[in-house]
Amino acid sequence: MNPMNYVILAAILFSIGAAAVLLRRNAIVAFMGVELMLNAANLALVAFSRIHGELDGQIMAFFVMVVAAAEVVVGLAIIIAVFRARQTISLDEPAELKG
């Protein structure tokens, strides 16, 4: 079977992640959507790595995981800071900046 199918799977996961960012009010869930998008990119990288017969794609996916972990730490820290201030993690609620 052609590994290209995995790339198509990656595209689907990417879209679902994006949809989660658009649809979910809970900041943590939306953020999980972003993580899913990053994972989808990783899947595509690994699949292409297999297709091209070289390791570079895997290395990249490895880096992305590290970066994503760091990003998660910062993102959750921000979410906690917001929660402490407002007692909510809804993305809709803080909307004083607009216009």
Binding site: A10, F14, G17, A18, V21, A27, A30, F31, V34, M37, L38, A40, A41, N42, A44, L45, F48, G57, M60, V64, E71, V74, G75, I78, I79, A81, V82, A85, R86, L91, P94, A95, E96, L97
Partner: peptide, 23 residues
Amino acid sequence: HEAALKYFILGAFSSAIYLFGVA
């Protein structure tokens, strides 16, 4: 806080888009 949260979510969103492009 609100600015940081928005900036972060959108920033992460855009870097995911970038990354998929790289792939």
